[in-house]
Design a protein around this nucleic acid. Structure first.
Lengths: 207, 207
DNA sequence: ACGAAATTGGAGTATCAACTCCAAAATCCG
DNA sequence: CGGATTTTGGAGTTGATACTCCAATTTCGT
């Protein structure tokens, strides 16, 4: 990868990016297996030889798509989660997720979750890669909750690690139910319920 | 279906069932797209003509698999959820789910959830079918919680409908995270956290 | 500008999976 | 038992898809 990346022209890099972005979009909207190389070629406006010049095969392209989506998702959530000033900021985080889903008309669900479900049983390497992505996401949430706890906005005996797992599960489950029902409500309700739970664990601010 | 089912010999019914069960298993363990008709033939011990005698094509077989898994899942959960005597019975429900997942070594995740993720963006009919399956599951949970509420084991101002959505999301999200990490812990933690939330909504029994 | 290296175009191939067809065998019902 | 019906076996066809190959062109460092 370093060898190849080193010898990559600006134009080449642009072409490679175009392929990855197109592949990521198509795989989200139609699933990995049902996205053909030909579809990706058409969407990215490249010829077969170009695609195979940058990627040895479909597996390698899938790897690149996972990396791309991981970066995209973690970037968005990092912004929202790094400063959970008040418990209300959790509500803004929820709004961001619900808005993105609504803009997509609930198509595709979670960019990482759908890849995980598609690939977990067919590509062990991809599964490991996605497990790491979820671990990173979970850690982002845990960190945010731990910060809140240090500010005294969360009970001292609450476990940010377990709450982060439960929150991420609520997000993933909510996204799946929203995807299958084409209705953003399940995601909103699932996340709101977890936020309610955090409220219940919130200490009164005054000592 | 009625026409065909009417003219179905005992042996024919057995063969059909064998095909559906084999297909359901393979699709859970490898995904729908990566399960070939040939694989199903081999697993069920039937020839191509037999399979196409009972099903017009792969789509019809997928429909049958969804029906089969829906029945399987709802049957299991009906048993657990129809009598939520105390809040502890929720813990037994969680144990059933965690045990099933552990026996599968976290392979496949949820029989309905993985189908939903696989098919939502490629087969609108299947998506609708799965949406109905989840609605039924959700209703089972809602009913159980509503019963608890009537017995006074849940606060009167709690909303069993929304809690059911959140609980089902926790189950689905937990199963996905467990599947991808090959560790039953996320499912356990996600469901336990929702149970904790219900605890917090539980009125003291004594007035 | 110039040569080496990266990039691109498009025709072609090999494989695999879904599906078909027809005749033989087993099964059911009166 | 006997005839109609259902069930089964297996070879063959069609279409799609991942992937290859090589020559032409563009880009980059010096």
């Amino acid at each position: 990868m370093t060898e190849i990346a080193r010898r990559l022209t600006r134009k080449g890099q642009a072409t490679r990016d175009r392929i990855v972005v197109a592949a990521a979009r198509l795989m989200l909207e139609h699933g990995v297996a049902r996205t053909t190389i030909e579809d990706i070629q058409a969407a990215a406006g490249v010829s077969p030889s170009q695609l195979y010049h940058y990627f040895p095969g479909k597996d390698a392209l899938v790897t690149a798509v996972i990396d791309h989506q991981t970066t995209q998702v973690l970037d968005v959530h990092q912004d929202c989660l790094q400063r959970l000033d008040t418990i209300d900021s959790l509500g803004r985080w929820r709004d961001v997720m619900v808005n993105i889903l609504t803009e997509m008309q609930c198509v595709g669900g979670c960019p990482l979750g759908s890849l995980a479900s598609d690939l977990s049983e067919s590509d062990p390497v991809a599964r490991t890669q996605l497990a790491a992505a979820f671990a990173g996401w979970q850690e982002l949430i845990r960190q945010g909750l731990a910060d809140m706890q240090q500010r005294g906005e969360l009970a001292a005996d609450a476990d940010p690690g377990e709450l982060a797992v439960a929150m991420l599960a609520a997000v993933q489950g909510g996204l799946l139910l929203s995807q299958v029902s084409r209705d953003p409500a399940p995601l909103r309700i699932a996340v709101d319920t977890m936020i309610d739970h955090l409220h219940a664990l919130t200490r009164p601010a005054v000592p």
